[in-house]
């Protein structure tokens, strides 16, 4: 199964569930620089594992921040800041094998929740690292994870299985809805085409 070609573990795919997001709190009073909230942008393993396969995480904040690129080389991979506005923060994960391409994504910094009584405002996203044919170095990192007693984030537990199930149900419904529409429209299309070609023939017949 494992071929040593190019130092990759051929045929190996490992999935690591993660969660990233923001936690925001209103400051007790407005600061002089206009900042109203304190927030934290974090990246974490879903199951509370450590992530020894990560070399560093770069958080790219809004350009108005002093040193907008924050590089975090040790867990916890998070940035805490204060601010007054929401924006899309960039996150770049560089793995221990730096020949592997980094993973990049954007996540919004949410300061204002839909329910104003709910504090803190938590906005987190479930995702998965998928490692296809990882290099040996990276593979070592991925397979040496262990549970930590880090009780930090996510603050709100995510019942991934339940959400997935709910999502799948909705997708199923949507798909069947689309499928029936496809059937209906393709039938209509077929009929119209038949009509056109038949009438065309008839026209040709009349003209000749």
């Amino acid at each position: 199964m494992e071929n040593a070609t190019h130092g990759r573990m051929r045929g190996v795919t490992i999935v690591k569930p993660i969660v990233y997001g923001t936690v925001a709190r209103l400051l007790s009073e407005k600061r002089e620089d206009g900042h109203t909230h304190s927030w934290t942008l974090f990246l974490q393993s879903l199951e509370g594992e450590d992530m020894p396969y990560i070399h560093q995480v770069e958080f790219r904040l809004h350009d108005s921040y002093h040193t907008p690129t924050r590089i975090v080389t040790k867990p916890p991979y998070q940035v805490s800041e204060t601010g007054w506005g929401e924006f899309e923060a960039g996150v770049k994960v560089i793995f221990i094998d730096q020949n592997e391409r980094p993973v990049q994504f954007y996540h919004p910094i949410k300061l204002f929740g839909e329910d104003p009584d709910k504090v803190p405002v938590i906005y987190q996203t479930y995702d998965e690292f998928v490692f296809i044919d990882p290099s040996r170095t990276l593979h070592r990192g991925i397979t040496s994870t262990k549970l930590t007693d880090n009780k930090g984030y996510p603050l709100e537990k995510m019942d991934v299985a339940a959400i997935e199930k709910e999502n799948l149900v909705r997708l199923e419904i949507a798909n069947s809805c689309i499928a029936s529409q496809i059937k209906e429209i393709s039938k209509k299309l077929k009929m119209t085409q038949r009509g056109i070609s038949a009438l065309k023939d008839k026209l040709e017949f009349i003209e000749s």
Binding site: V103, D127, E128, P134
Partner: peptide
Amino acid sequence: ERGAGPYLRS
């Protein structure tokens, strides 16, 4: 189409 290497499911 995904080649070898890490990627995010999203």
